[in-house]
Amino acid sequence: MSADQKQRSIRCLVAKVGLDGHDRGAHVIARAFRDAGFEVIYSGLHKAPEDIVQAAVQEDVDVLGISILSGAHNALIPKVVEGLEEYGAFEDTLLLVGGVIPDEDKAKLKEQGVAEVFGPGTELEETIQFIRENAPER
């Protein structure tokens, strides 16, 4: 078996947390990630933070990308971080947030453990490149 065959592709969970019902962007991201060669799991709509943590742990993902447009990011993202920490999965999971996040909230999210926040208009290739450069190696 060659080194390329042994290399595991990057596993990503694209998740919608809370009551946010807008998922067009999440579908676009999931498709772009798949086309980039990543393994992609999509959570579906209206997931509790605990549900997303469970899926991330059970699926052994490298990247957890949360799409949120509801404005509840300051309440919901810390719950995801806490859940990942409880399972010992936080250090092995690249946590990304995408959506309409006010600039003043981005630094706070990063302090809480979010690796990067991607807003509307971010080029898909920029997000893909960030993942390739920062996903944990296993």
Rank of each mutant, 00 (worst) to 15 (best):
S43I: 12
G71M: 06
I10G: 01
F90E: 03
A75V: 15
V14P: 00
N134K: 09
A115V: 14
G21K: 00
Q7T: 13
A55I: 15
D51M: 03
F118Q: 03
V40Q: 02
E50K: 05
D4P: 10
R24A: 08
A15Q: 06
A32C: 13
E116H: 12
I101C: 02
R138H: 08
K106N: 05
H22G: 03
G119V: 15
L84H: 04
P49G: 00
A56N: 05
A75K: 11
A56V: 08
E50G: 07
G44S: 05
G88K: 04
S67F: 00
Q112H: 07
A56M: 09
D105M: 10
K47H: 09
A89F: 14
A48N: 05
D105S: 10
G25D: 08
I128N: 01
A15D: 04
D35T: 11
L45H: 06
R8N: 12
K47R: 15
S67D: 01
K108A: 10
R8D: 12
P102Q: 03
L96Q: 04
K106L: 08
A107N: 10
L19M: 10
P120Y: 00
V14W: 00
I128S: 00
L69S: 04
H27D: 09
K6G: 10
P49Y: 01
E104Y: 14
G99M: 09
E125H: 13
V57I: 15
K16L: 11
R11F: 12
Q7E: 09
S9L: 08
R11L: 09
Q5I: 15
Q112T: 06
A135C: 12
V63I: 13
D20A: 03
G99D: 06
V80S: 06
D103E: 09
G119E: 13
V17F: 01
G99N: 05
A135V: 15
D20E: 05
Q7M: 11
A89I: 13
P102D: 03
E86S: 06
F38P: 05
L76P: 14
E85Y: 09
D92E: 11
E39I: 14
N74P: 06
A26Y: 00
L69T: 08
T122W: 14
E126P: 13
I66A: 02
V81R: 05
K106T: 14
H46Q: 07
V28S: 03
K108C: 08
Q129E: 14
N74E: 09
T93D: 11
L94M: 07
A3F: 15
N74A: 05
P136Q: 00
I29M: 09
A26T: 05
E91Q: 14
A3H: 13
S70G: 13
S43N: 04
H27Q: 12
E85F: 06
D35S: 07
V63E: 02
H73K: 02
H46K: 05
F33H: 02
V40A: 03
E116P: 13
K79G: 03
A56S: 11
L109I: 10
G25W: 10
R34L: 13
P102W: 11
